[in-house]
Design a protein around this nucleic acid. Structure first.
Lengths: 333, 333
DNA sequence: AAAGAAACTGGTAACGTTTTCATAAAATAA
DNA sequence: TTATTTTATGAAAACGTTACCAGTTTCTTT
């Protein structure tokens, strides 16, 4: 494997000089620069990143923390984030934090070894060691799509409960009173969105009925379909349904179709997230739109400024959401 | 930042000894080992990866090459691959090869700098420099979901044209004679699947009609919907449709719904890939199922054996596909 | 108890860069 | 011209590891 020394020898200069042209410093005479460039081109030399990282103390790499299995919204956000990271010239490494403690610990260990420039967390981590490590070592960190009380990290999110409230209020405005809900577990957004559901009912003086709420065990379409079956099996009656995630909503629509219930004819369904799919499903899904593109690019931009300035204070940004009415909701018959 | 020297000093031993316990060598006396372990725990020390990589000449990192924007099938495969990589203890880095030459070149440059242990390519790259670099430096490489003539790299894929033939033959068996097709561009699978479509028609003595074929410019649902509109605008008549991708198929179903055409009532639709979504869409999609889980795990397993053995010959593996009949196809009326 | 083998340990040289510092060359000013 | 500043250059140290080698224990065997 060819190294900087070889280039120096080939061009008849010292390694320092080669290093200078490699790092785009302009204080090198034209003739030598050309000889060096020629040698580089001829040999196909590319500087060794490990060596660079070691001496320069930073890696130009940002880590992305994800859960083991990530849902469509996360995949979409993830691909936006990586894309922008690329634009800023960062490399990207992955860290899977499984939901169990051992998984998070392993994740943290790798994080430490890698001496990252920064971190974007797309998945709520529970372990206190995480926070300790990040704060003690002042690792620039952005929490995307959620907040963490007490963490001194920049966070980008929307007001989950307000958005859910608006989604459910829409159903109420359409005349629905029997509104079921498909919730979830583990993450803070699930309780926040459920809270929005309760508030909307409360505002309309509709009593909260626990039998109309089912919890999906996973945030995918299968989870949504299963939760819906649970609802139907328990003889819950409803003319509308709020699913805390588009994917769950789409799964529940599948489940409804299996029982020959049409959407929005028999049941109005509203989701949350506005994943790409929701505008192409049959029927198109009425939902809350998270500003996913802005979230992605702001996460990266903010992280970058955190990395470069080093003195920026952590901010918590609540981005505006929008309600998108499509074909899955209708006036109560 | 704390280093191996600090641990050595703290434990009252030499760095060599610390290095030995770090690398799980058993020839260290129990008392020293314990003192070292205690020092490590106390300080929270984790060895610096860059330094390790530099001296050990390998990085425990495998790269994944992806296109700038990847479709649902690729996302799914990608997440399976990363998951298995994790299991084998590899780190994962991303390389986006945009479709233009400059993008591929930049991708290659980074690849070289990173001294990867291996590479999984999920996106066809065109640049000859790619192949040259990989072969000359004997970088273990797996081509997932496609083959490349002449490349000495292991490849995992299915027989695209046979699968497409089977999908279209199914439509013919159902009595359809006017079968449209939504194809695509750029990648070899698109022409191979189109080839399967032609063969199926040929076998049934149905003349190939170019006006019944539209090409999507992107492999997503929007692309599918647009291609379908094109077909309808050009007054093509058909009672069945083969889309070379599930995502395109689902997009076309959306487009058909916009024209009040029902599936499978008015038009039977068959897709290709069997992405997760296809079993939950309304209607459920009849499609060709790629063994995506096996493809992902075999890619990783094969890559691993390539990395560890160093003498394995490249193999080209064609995995079996299956035809999955669901609700989007029906007998011609 | 002596000799030999085995297990353990520390010093030091790599690895491929960047950075600092001193020096040499060139450019400018007097 | 000479003195002074500026610009280029190379030598050598550092970065945090692992690997090798030699030396020192400790354990077996006679």
């Amino acid at each position: 494997m060819i190294s900087i020394k070889d280039i120096a020898k080939l061009a008849g200069v010292s390694v320092s000089t080669v290093s200078r042209v490699l790092n785009h410093q302009d204080n090198v005479k034209a003739d030598k620069r050309e000889r060096i460039l020629a040698a580089i081109k001829q040999t196909g030399y590319v500087p060794n990143r490990a060596a660079r990282d070691m001496v320069s103390k930073h890696t130009s790499t940002v880590g992305i923390v994800l859960p083991g299995m990530f849902n469509m919204f996360q995949r979409q956000l993830f691909s936006i984030v990586v894309h922008h990271l690329e634009q800023f010239g960062y490399h990207t490494s992955f860290y899977f934090a499984s939901t169990d403690e051992e998984g998070e610990l392993a994740c943290l260990r790798r994080l430490k070894a890698d001496r990252l420039d920064g971190l974007i967390i797309l998945h709520e981590v529970a372990l206190p060691e995480f926070r300790t490590y990040l704060e003690e070592n002042k690792i620039p960190t952005v929490l995307a799509t959620f907040e963490r009380d007490g963490w001194k990290a920049t966070s980008i999110h929307i007001s989950e409960d307000e958005a859910a409230l608006q989604a459910v209020s829409h159903l109420i405005k359409l005349g629905h009173r029997d509104i079921a809900c498909i919730g979830g577990t583990k993450y803070s957004f699930s309780s926040q969105r459920l809270e929005g559901y309760r508030k909307a009912l409360e505002q309309a003086s509709i009593p909260y009925d626990a039998s109309k709420v089912a919890f999906a065990d996973v945030y995918n379409m299968e989870g949504g379909a299963k939760a819906l079956n649970q609802l139907l099996d328990s003889k819950a009656t409803f003319t509308a349904l709020f699913a805390i995630t588009d994917e769950l909503a789409l799964g529940s629509i599948r489940g409804l179709a299996d029982h020959n219930l049409s959407v929005p004819g028999d049941v109005s369904v509203v989701g949350f997230d506005n994943i790409e799919l929701s505008s192409f499903s049959v029927p198109r899904l009425t939902t809350i739109s998270q500003p996913i593109v802005e979230m992605g690019q702001m996460s990266v931009a903010l992280l970058h400024s955190l990395i470069t300035s080093k003195n920026g204070l952590p901010v918590s940004i609540a981005l505006p959401f929008t309600f998108v009415q499509r074909d899955s909701t209708a006036q109560r018959r």
